[in-house]
Simulated scan of single mutants.
Amino acid sequence: MPEHFVEELDQGTRSAMVKLLNANLSNAIALTLAVKQAHWNLKGRGFIGVHELLDEVADRLREGADLMAERAVILGGFAEGTLEVVAERSEIDAYPVEEADIAAHIDALKQRFKFVGAEVRKGIVEAAEAGDEDTADLLTGVSRALDKDAWFIGANA
């Protein structure tokens, strides 16, 4: 691993947290792409509001992904966010590419947000148990944003 900037955590803990952060990074990037897929293709009542909301949601997802990637590097690892890595490691269901119905997009996104949120919350517990309160705190912020965006999206149903 390259240089790290957190002296209080041992190598094993740092390595485990880098792996945890990269797993959540893959899910966040895949979810961002799903949000953009919906943004580009949805049609129906309430289109403009949901279309604009999804741009804002994608921005927030990218911010959370950036925080997770940077934390992995701070811990002495590498951020692994390439297309190839995300395609291999993301655990969210493949997003439908031939869907236009706004209600179907809302439902598909809501399900994926709930899944990614649950995975991030598992990460919070794992980080706290490992003694990495900073990673746990970072993931808590990501979790709050995911839950809020799930609500924003789901409230359009």
Rank of each mutant, 00 (worst) to 15 (best):
N22D: 02
L54Y: 07
A104P: 01
V120E: 01
E70D: 13
K122L: 08
E133A: 13
L20I: 09
V97E: 14
K114H: 13
A136P: 07
I153E: 11
A103L: 11
R144Q: 15
E63T: 13
E84M: 14
D134Y: 00
L67F: 09
G141L: 01
V97I: 12
L21M: 10
A136S: 15
I74M: 12
F115R: 12
K43A: 07
A145N: 04
A28E: 13
N41Q: 14
L139P: 01
G64V: 03
H51L: 10
A30W: 07
R121W: 02
A28Q: 15
L25Q: 05
L54F: 09
S143V: 03
N156R: 12
E7W: 03
P2H: 05
G131Y: 11
G123K: 06
E129F: 08
E119P: 01
N27S: 14
Y95S: 13
I102R: 05
A150N: 12
M68H: 09
M1V: 09
E119H: 04
Q111R: 14
G12Y: 00
L61D: 10
D132W: 04
G44C: 08
Y95Q: 12
G81A: 07
L9A: 02
T32N: 14
R121F: 02
A58D: 10
G64H: 03
A155K: 14
E80W: 04
V73C: 07
E91I: 00
G154D: 05
G44W: 09
I48W: 13
